[in-house]
Simulated assay, not measured.
Amino acid sequence: MLLDVKLPVYYIFKRILPDILRVMLISIIFQLLKYFFGHYLPLIPLQLATILGSSISLLLAFNVSQSYDRWWEGRKIWGAVVNDSRTLVLQVRSFLQPEALSAREASEHLTAVAYRQIAWCYSLGESLRGQDPMPSLAKFLSEPDLAYAQAQKNRPLALLALHSTQIRELHLKQAVNTFQQVQLDSTLVRLCETMGQAERIKSTVFPANYRLLVHFLIYLFLGTLSLSLVESMGFWEVPVLLLIATTFFLIERTARYLQDPFNNAPTDTPVTAISRNVEINLKQLLEEPNVPAPLTSDTFYLM
């Protein structure tokens, strides 16, 4: 997630530099054609370029709007992850029946659920980014849980299955009653739905043909604008065209990076930082003395 700080110039322009160089090359070619073959260049009215620019602006506005909707949905999903993670541990802590379990057993069960939920948050975020979550899970899971997760392809789903098994065992031991089991299962269902929503965003790509069409139309507009300005502005057409091109390509690239909020990029939803906040909250609920600090960043983004 980009932070509210001054963005470095290299980050803003490095992605559009190839496009800007191509536009500059096109502009220089038209300048040379005007100089050597001025009578053969077509006279294109500026109104045509204006109409094209207005149409492309509408397409870019739609593109940015849809891309931001995807990014914002990803952020809302992880807000639900935080809420349901806290809810699950609070429910287990309040539901466990003291007459069915000793204080030590109740503490072990609560700790197992809390640590497994912390592991679930980290594993979900890393899985969405295409990373291997297993190295992050070793410090949160018991050996049997770790071995079970290792054998599964979908590690976050495996951890939810372990949650479900433990809740069923607590119900069989009468450590939670039937109504409490239903409440815990409802929380697990919400966590599973949240995971599915995040996976849907990750697996559903923004239509590539739409992106290519917008990219082509930008070049068509800039070429038309260059032919329209080359007669009236002379050499000044080059910097003017580059300035306009920079604006259009920056907007297009901004939309492209917002389309995937789980791409391990600075524009991502900060799933690692959110998972760390969940870890802090749940360890405080366990009243543990050593609670990690929230993630901070010395750069312009937070992952």
Rank of each mutant, 00 (worst) to 15 (best):
N83A: 11
S85R: 01
S85V: 02
V89L: 09
Q91R: 14
Q91E: 12
V92Q: 04
F95K: 11
Q97N: 15
P98D: 12
P98M: 08
E99W: 15
E99R: 15
A100T: 08
A100S: 15
A103G: 14
A103E: 15
R104F: 06
R104K: 14
R104Q: 15
E105W: 03
A106L: 13
S107C: 11
E108T: 08
H109A: 12
H109F: 14
L110V: 09
L110Y: 05
T111H: 09
T111D: 11
T111R: 14
V113H: 06
V113W: 00
A114V: 12
A114Q: 08
Y115T: 00
Y115H: 14
Q117D: 03
Q117E: 07
I118C: 08
A119W: 04
A119C: 06
A119K: 04
W120K: 02
W120C: 04
C121W: 02
L124P: 00
E126I: 01
L128D: 07
L128M: 15
R129G: 10
G130Y: 14
D132W: 06
P133M: 10
P135V: 13
P135N: 13
S136D: 02
L137M: 07
K139C: 08
F140H: 11
L141I: 04
E143K: 05
P144I: 04
D145Q: 07
D145E: 11
D145P: 01
Y148H: 07
Y148D: 03
A149P: 01
A149D: 00
A151E: 12
R155S: 07
R155Y: 05
R155P: 00
R155M: 08
P156A: 06
P156M: 06
L157D: 11
L157R: 14
A158M: 00
L159M: 13
A161S: 09
L162F: 03
L162T: 00
L162C: 05
H163M: 09
H163P: 04
S164W: 06
T165D: 12
Q166C: 12
Q166N: 15
Q166K: 14
I167P: 01
I167H: 06
L172V: 10
K173R: 12
Q174C: 04
Q174T: 09
A175F: 02
A175C: 05
A175K: 01
N177H: 13
N177F: 07
T178Q: 13
T178P: 00
T178W: 06
F179L: 11
F179D: 05
Q180Y: 07
Q180V: 06
V182N: 13
Q183L: 15
Q183A: 14
T187L: 02
T187G: 01
T187R: 00
T187D: 05
L188C: 07
V189G: 03
V189C: 01
R190T: 04
R190G: 01
R190W: 01
R190A: 09
C192S: 14
C192F: 09
E193L: 13
E193H: 10
T194W: 03
G196I: 03
G196K: 06
Q197T: 10
Q197H: 13
E199I: 08
E199L: 14
R200T: 13
I201G: 04
T204P: 05
V205S: 13
F206A: 11
P207D: 10
P207Y: 08
N209M: 14
N209P: 04
L217C: 11
I218N: 08
